[in-house]
Design a binder for these strands. Structure first.
Length: 573
DNA sequence: GCCGTTTTCGGCCCGACTGTTTTCAGTCG
């Protein structure tokens, strides 16, 4: 039972308590769950050191429950709650406009206890007979269930980001507007996004709100008032717009960027200082005088905090850091000097080497690594040793023609099930960079898989461990791997771990980046491009690294071409 | 259930919008 399993149990308890109408406890359970989720080491380790109650939000009662859960894998308290609340009711909370009160009411009045039964009841017009509910609520709930069924789940950061930027561009070009920004989890750069939030700062926002609702891709307007509008786009994505006066823009941007937990922490600080923080500004509680609000910087400063970049606003230590002026410098896109993982038409990519080099030049890169697959990945037309030798020559020639950009001849070599590499050592030694990746036998048990990966790291033949956990967001979880052990080996052998920038990978993920940074393991940003358009994914990797608190010094490809060459050559001896 | 530079008890962030109401509860972010 790992940290996320424990957190899942606590989240479920929170939902069940909420359905029962219990006040405050749900928040307490969720807070503890979140903090456990974000720990950078296994809970069992924390327990062994007797430091469980040092986790914020975990007190006496929760500490006992968590320990019981860890040692027995069971929790009678959860079983008791489950027996009191029908299973499907928790799922019903996912339906828009159905909260704990409504779910319980429907259960008691109509005997509804699942989303399916709720849908049937709504179709039979039985909801409108319940006291407090009417025709419109019934219709909204039905619509909500349909959206839930069709869309199911969250959107990738890499999908949501361009969608939101296009919306913002449309608003900017169709209406005069003082300030506008994406907010919410999208601005924080989470790897998946529930819905898109846009904030407008303008003293007369009526026209912008009308334009927002009139966006061509809008399928339905869900809510529309003088300061707020929500729409659903074709395809089911919900987009929320909020408008505030320009003088409140900074406070509102802070507020709507979140996270919720980060905001609560900030308000607590405000309360201690006799201040009130809301989306309109920071105010003296007694006099009501506005202290800050036009910019985010101003708000943080007035709370006695250093500015906190959006990506790390998760209430996982950043507020304390800001209080002590220890907010880390985070890596920026403009510091990345090249892409270290690109495929070409030699294996399963679709563009030739020359086109990749042109794109690298266009992006202002100093270098780009050509890293095609090795032969065991037959489905991807992986390269045999002979073909790889020929490709190296081709890459050198293309570099001569490219006029300036350095082409690193490399390989994404398979780490075979026994931990050996899918390419002879003498061939690897002639390359400029080697990424080792697992592409087969994902279902090994934890000990085996860890041994396999550590063997590759310890071989001295790879520079980078590619997409280290193998997850595909929304499709496949990470393979069983003892990441702390792997990071330990990487630190020992000077091997970098990749942040694969492909939208459905983002692997390492944010929290693992932080763990890597804490152990002094450098990360390597690679887009895993299979066509040159994919090279734009690099920014997703930068965002992920930032969410992992990584600075320029933690990222291999902030090195200039000559420093990088020196680093890599040093490993070749 | 947690937590403490007003508190070891009594708080727990705050506001917009909607629907079904005759003044507000529920949901959402």
């Amino acid at each position: 039972m790992d940290n996320s399993d424990v957190a899942a149990v606590l989240y479920e308890i929170a939902d069940l308590l909420e359905l029962q109408g219990v006040a405050f406890k749900p928040q307490a359970y969720r807070r503890a769950a979140r903090n456990i989720e974000q720990l950078d080491r296994p809970l069992s380790e924390v327990v062994a050191e007797g430091k469980l109650d040092e986790v914020p939000g975990v007190g006496e009662a929760l500490s006992k429950k968590v320990q019981e859960l860890l040692s027995t894998g069971e929790l009678p308290y959860l079983d008791k709650l489950r027996s009191e609340v029908p299973e499907g009711l928790v799922r019903m909370l996912e339906v828009p406009d159905v909260g704990p009160k409504t779910a319980m009411l429907l259960h008691q009045e109509l005997g509804v206890s699942s989303v399916e039964e709720l849908k049937a009841a709504a179709l039979a017009h039985r909801l409108r007979g319940v006291k407090g509910l009417g025709e419109k609520t019934e219709e909204r709930i039905l619509q909500g269930i349909k959206v839930l069924e069709s869309k199911g789940g969250r959107m990738l950061l890499g999908e949501a980001l361009p969608m939101a930027e296009e919306y913002v561009e449309y608003l900017k070009s169709s209406q005069r507007v003082d300030r506008i920004s994406v907010a919410g989890s999208l601005r924080r750069g989470r790897d998946t996004i529930g819905d898109i939030d846009i904030l407008v700062g303008d003293d007369d926002p009526g026209a912008v709100i009308d334009a927002f609702a009139a966006y061509p891709a809008v399928e339905a307007v869900l809510v529309k008032g003088p300061t707020k509008c929500s729409v659903r786009l074709d395809g089911g994505t919900q987009v929320d717009l909020r408008a505030v006066e320009t003088k409140s823009y900074g406070a509102a941007l802070q507020y709507f960027t979140g996270s919720k937990e980060h905001n609560v922490a900030l308000r607590r600080i405000g309360v201690e200082m006799g201040l009130k923080l809301n989306e309109y500004g920071l105010f003296e509680r007694d006099s009501g005088r506005m202290v800050a609000g036009a910019t985010e910087e101003e708000v943080y400063s007035a709370l006695g905090l250093a500015y906190i970049p959006p990506e790390i606003r998760e209430n996982s230590g950043e507020v304390e850091a800001a209080r002590q002026g220890r907010v880390p410098e985070l890596v920026r896109l403009d510091q990345v000097k090249g892409d270290l993982h690109v495929h070409t038409d030699w294996s399963d990519g679709s563009d030739p080497v020359g086109k990749v080099l042109s794109e690298a030049t266009r992006r202002g890169y100093e270098y780009v690594a050509i890293t095609d697959h090795s032969q065991s990945l037959k489905i991807a037309n992986g390269l045999t040793p002979e073909r790889l030798r020929r490709q190296v020559d081709a890459v050198r020639k293309a570099e001569d023609l490219a006029g300036g950009v350095v082409a690193l001849a490399g390989s994404e070599v398979d780490i075979l099930p026994d931990g050996s590499l899918d390419m002879p050592s003498d061939v690897l030694n002639d390359l400029d960079i080697v990424i080792g990746s697992v592409h087969s036998r994902f279902k090994m048990d934890r000990a085996e898989m860890t041994k396999r990966v550590v063997a590759a790291i310890s071989s001295g033949r790879i520079d980078v461990l590619g997409h280290p956990t193998g997850r595909l967001i929304g499709q496949r979880g990470p393979y069983e791997l003892d990441l702390p052990t792997v990071l330990g080996a990487a630190a020992e052998h000077g091997v970098c771990v990749e942040v694969n920038c492909f939208p459905d990978r983002l692997d390492l993920r944010d929290a693992d980046c932080r763990a890597a940074g804490a152990r002094g393991v450098r990360v390597s940003l690679g887009t895993d491009s299979h066509r040159v358009e994919h090279m734009g994914f690099i920014r997703l990797g930068v965002i992920t690294a930032r969410r992992g608190w990584l600075g320029p010094g933690d990222v291999l490809n902030t090195l200039g071409a000559s420093e990088l060459a020196k680093h890599l050559r040093g490993r070749r001896r």
